[in-house]
Amino acid sequence: MSLALGATWVVFVVLWQTAGLPVAGLAGGHADVLMLIVLVWAYLRSPRQAIALAVIGGFTVDILSAHAPGVTVLALLPAAAIGGFQGIKLLDTDWVSPAILAVGSTVVFHFILLVLLNVQGGAPPLWDAMMSTVLASAVVNGLVTPLLYAFVWLASFDVRPSRRRLRTT
């Protein structure tokens, strides 16, 4: 899956969200799909491409929502960095680490978003929001990540060695 397709996917996700359509949620928390795409993209493919997706998706969100331009980009960028760390391999399987990274990324994403919105005024108090919604969102994101991971993994045929080649080697 090329970066152009990834960008199209990201813009579609933003249009979905700004059109007011529902996203997966649980106990007051909702999946941060855009942030998860950036994270999984950085983990599976390339952090540099994930940075590009964060910029494209973040600016699209900011332009189509009431945010000042740049707020969502700044909140999304750490997900590209967190997903891109090569050293993180907590377990033998590749499917669990992204979910754990997603939990951490959620906290960072919401913290930056809340700080920037608080600086601009009108956002809920930082600590209250962190306790009431961010923890629930972190759990939802952890659960949703394997689905997005599977999607990007299946679509990453251009960077994934085929089974036949693996067998012959």
Binding site: S65, A66, A123
Partner: peptide
């Protein structure tokens, strides 16, 4: 359009 997060509830 509608805002996408829970910290800012707004519509365009």
């Amino acid at each position: 359009a509608r805002s996408t997060d829970r910290y800012e509830r707004a519509v365009a």
